[in-house]
Amino acid sequence: MAALALGVMACGGPPPETSSPATGNGGESGGVDTDLSGSAADPERWPRDFVAGPGTGPALYLNDDPRSPAIGYITEGVHFRIGGLPQNERIPVRIRGALKVRAWMSVSRLALRVQQRGKIGGTEVYVGPGDYVRFVSPDAEEGLARVEAMPRFSYDAMGAAATGVYPFDRLSHEAPPADAEAPASGTTMRTPANTEVAIYSSPDEVITTLPALDPGVRLEVLRDRGEWKGVRAGVGPYIVGYVNVDLVEPGELEEPPTPPTSEDVPLRLQNQQQNPLWRLPAGTRVRFDDETIGILDEDGYGREMNRYESTGEVDMFVAANDEVALRGMVRIDDLQPIEGEGDAAAE
Rank of each mutant, 00 (worst) to 15 (best):
R109L: 01
R279T: 06
T284W: 02
F168G: 00
I239A: 00
V324G: 07
Y155W: 14
P177Y: 04
V330P: 01
I338K: 05
S172W: 08
A3S: 15
D315L: 09
N271P: 00
Y238Q: 01
D264C: 01
S106T: 15
G312C: 11
D322M: 06
V206K: 13
T292I: 15
V206Q: 14
R48W: 04
L280E: 01
S106M: 00
L269H: 02
G121E: 14
R268W: 11
D42K: 13
G83F: 01
L219N: 02
G328V: 13
R307P: 00
K229Y: 03
A111Y: 01
E174K: 14
G30Q: 12
Y242R: 08
G342N: 14
P337V: 03
A193I: 07
G72S: 07
Y308C: 00
I295W: 00
I82C: 07
N271M: 12
G84T: 06
G30K: 09
T311F: 09
G186N: 09
R81S: 15
G31S: 10
P192G: 08
Q336I: 14
G57S: 08
D290L: 13
P16Q: 03
R190F: 05
S185C: 06
L171Q: 02
R96K: 15
A182T: 07
P183M: 10
E196F: 02
V51F: 03
T191K: 06
S106Y: 00
D64G: 11
R90V: 11
A198Q: 13
E227D: 11
M105Q: 13
A22L: 14
G30E: 10
A233H: 01
L210C: 07
R45L: 15
P58T: 14
V235Y: 02
Y242N: 11
E174P: 01
I91H: 02
P337L: 05
G24A: 12
V231L: 08
G53W: 06
M150D: 04
T261A: 12
S39C: 09
A184C: 04
R225D: 13
V243Q: 03
P281M: 04
V114G: 00
R90D: 06
L335T: 04
G97V: 07
F153Q: 03
E174I: 09
G216D: 12
V101D: 01
M329D: 10
R303N: 01
S172E: 03
E124K: 10
P14W: 00
E181W: 00
G241D: 05
T18G: 14
L326N: 08
S185H: 13
D333C: 01
R279G: 05
P129L: 08
G57L: 05
V217W: 11
R287E: 12
D264Q: 07
E313A: 10
R113G: 03
P15V: 13
A40Q: 10
S172P: 04
A111G: 10
A198F: 01
P54R: 10
A162E: 14
G236R: 05
V101R: 04
D315E: 12
A161L: 05
G251M: 10
E17Y: 03
L280G: 02
K119E: 13
V197M: 05
A346G: 09
P14A: 10
V197H: 02
G251C: 10
P211H: 12
S262D: 08
G230C: 04
Y126I: 06
D169H: 12
D131P: 02
V265T: 11
A178V: 15
V114L: 02
Y61Q: 07
A3I: 10
G7D: 12
T258I: 14
V8I: 11
